[in-house]
Design a protein around this nucleic acid. Sequence first.
DNA 1: GACATCACG
DNA 2: GACGTACGTGATGTCC
Length: 933
Amino acid sequence: MSNTEFGKGCHLHLIDGSAFIFRAYHALPPLTRKSDGLPIGAVAGFCNMLQRYVEGNTGPDAPTHVAVIFDHSGKTFRNDLYDLYKANRPPAPEDLRPQFPLTRTATRAFNIACKEVEGFEADDIMATLACQARDAGGRCTIISSDKDLMQLVGGGVEMLDAMKNKRIDRDGVIEKFGVGPERVVDVQALAGDSVDNVPGAPGIGIKTAALLINEYGDLESLLDRASEIKQPKRRQTLIDKRKQIEMSKTLVQLDCNMALDFTIADLEVRDPDPEVLLGFLAEMEFRTLTKRMADQLGQEAPAIAEAPAGVIEVIAEDVPFDRDAYTCVRSADELQPWIDQIRQRGWVAVDTETTGLDEMVVDLVGISLCVEPGTACYIPLTHRAAAADDLFGSDDLAKGQMPLTTALEMLKPVLEDPAIMKIGQNMKYDAKIFARQGITVAPMDDTMLMSYALHGGLHNHGMDTLSERYLDHTPIPIKPLLGTGKSAITFDKVPVSDAIPYAAEDADITLRLWQLFKPRLHQAKVSTVYETLERPLIPVLAKMEMDGIKVDRDTLSRMSNAFAQKMAELEADIHALAGRPFNVGSPKQLGEILFDEMGLEGGKKGKTGAYATGADILEDLATEHDLPARVLDWRQLSKLKSTYTDALQDHINADTGRVHTSYLQTGANTGRMASKDPNLQNIPVRSEEGRRIREAFIPEPGNVLLSLDYSQIELRILAHVAGIDALKQAFADGLDIHAMTASEMFDVSLDEMTPEIRRQAKAINFGVIYGISGFGLARNLRIPRAEAQGFINRYFERFPGIRTYMDATVEFAKEHGYVQTLFGRKIHTPEIAAKGPRAGFAKRAAINAPIQGTAADVIRRAMIRMPDAIAHLPARMLLQVHDELLFEVPEASVEETIAAARTAMENAADPAVHLDVKLIVDAGRGANWAEAH
DNA sequence: GACATCACG
DNA sequence: GACGTACGTGATGTCC
């Protein structure tokens, strides 16, 4: 087939592919392919736009030549001119990235030429082609509304805004820029562009720029004669910023002389091959479009099977688990086909095997990959060889493993490729392992977090649970491989032959779960929760955990010694008072001493038949006897020593000298996080002795610790969700909320408020959040139950919206089986229909969950935005304690960091939710956590 | 491994 | 009318 030479009478259409993609992405909900969950919303919109475009191409104005022009990913020559060019562009959404290559495939399926050039923007290609078309005496229509392209208009080149179906000719350009196309770059050079981060001349916009250019003729004359300008400020700007303005012009000036490896003649309009086009549309599972296109082409529409065609023909239910089918990858040659497969599909499930569970310490042992259900491999890397005389392996590496560095060099481009989705179960773990190898994994999907968004409150989200519940498959247990107790071995000692099925299966399971969960997120309307509250938190938490917090060993050690001495003294006293030695740490023995031997009153046995000796009981007994008081003191010291001053020392990382906790993103049903190994969310603060432990948490020299915490966030959220005007007003007026509650309830003016009355009101306020009961309040305040019930009744009278909210929440839970936060997080309440005492639990949990959960969502949003909010500062976010964020920052940047972090936190609900009550953040600073808090 | 206890929000 | 109860976590030591 020979190409028609392009010339007079010819008409070239250039379609701005990126504009099509982004318009399609934002116009449509996040659709996913039914069979496997691949995000295809943008591809669907893109194809619809192409279809409408092709359909409308009739009549005398129809093009003879056409191409869709795309931006090539990566840096362009403009970044070499100005490294901040387009630097404030947010990265493409993660569910859009895998769709980029598919839009190219779609274009080719329509049999339309598809062009992109590395190092250049689509605009430059279009500029070069438009100039060539013009010079050849033909016409050119650029289908885009991007104003950067308007400089090309004229001499047979026009633009077409496909959305408004409006042609933009020379007059249209003058209307937009106030100058003709030939002077557009001059105006743009002056006005700059905040979207592309083109600086221009500060203080000069398009209007002023056009005025100046029209007066002086062109930019060069204007800059040469800048001293003639009357307005002093404008004059000075043009003189001072000449370099910046000239650089801006080079940025906006499109390149009309690119060397292209094709000619316009190659872009001749061609009819699509029905088989190719319909095949592609069917593979994407676009039912309506496939049919419409088939009608248009006069073809039979291909059937879209529930089990789709092409590379994604395998779905989980069709493939039984087969542990013998997994592959072992032992060389670069064996790894390469897997990488090719991954690139072809655009996703891969990944799992790492390591020598332990502490990501900050362990070594990488192997990596497993899965590209479709049943097709998985294991890449052993640092397994130890079995030694003849040693059952647990030698120090030598086992044979038949590729070098770790080779594997990582090959996998790094894949793991970092923005167009390839990396799928994992608890990806934060694997991402940290890879981060320690210099690999920044992105983008990521996490089946554990998907399950949390889908099934929060129903069950835990570990791989074993998910596999059994949703795949009806019990994974190979790790126990038999590693053993237990003293004889337990690490994974590098596991023979490779045993490791293959175990490791590869985990990746296989993960991929199957992903295929299953991905479409369900949308169906269950929790895509937004997953996309905005779960997935983006992974890298934020990973960084916080890797940064850790500095803890001073000497301070802890001194405290431990002091506690030990004091405990020994108390123990001696206690034994003397008891009349015999016993284990003070044994509640069982203590109960027998107190109630059997000493005959104290009030001995109550719990369900196991042992006496209860909790702090509340000992406090009551303390009025009658010295022993329980001493035991209380001893217990406090014992707790502080064993859980904090001793244990924390063991958690100081040998390499970093810091303590690195792990956050459990799915740890709490409400959306809160939990912290473990060590738990840094329960460091003592309420007691004076305990609070001193926080003195051991310190910044690096020259730095300070900053603590920012939300003030009364749960009560503020309660005021909003229950619509309590009196509470809202009190917060708006900046009142002491507990005093105000007390004043309302007990008819005491704020001036006459006593600490005791305020304390009671505070307990009631918290009780309300917890789903108050007369019994619970009575116990908390140590008052008769009837009196507590009286308080509650009075509270409901004074704030009637509270009861309505509680009743409505419980009703909602009964009807739907879940409750929701303001941000759409679902917390399932399977026990709500239970009978007996469990019903009470479920009710209170249902009342509490939206409040606690909304507060949790708010701080998550703040944390997700925080890296950007403090990017310009040398500050690090170290810890989260439910309503508090702790930062480490050089002294010089303290004020700026407080301002930036506070803004991010106080506005965290916006724009998704507008709260009727402002969020207020208090800030503290200090040389340790005790001072900062 | 279950239970009791206690540290935090 | 009785049930047994504040909401959400993790770590530790005892005891079986």
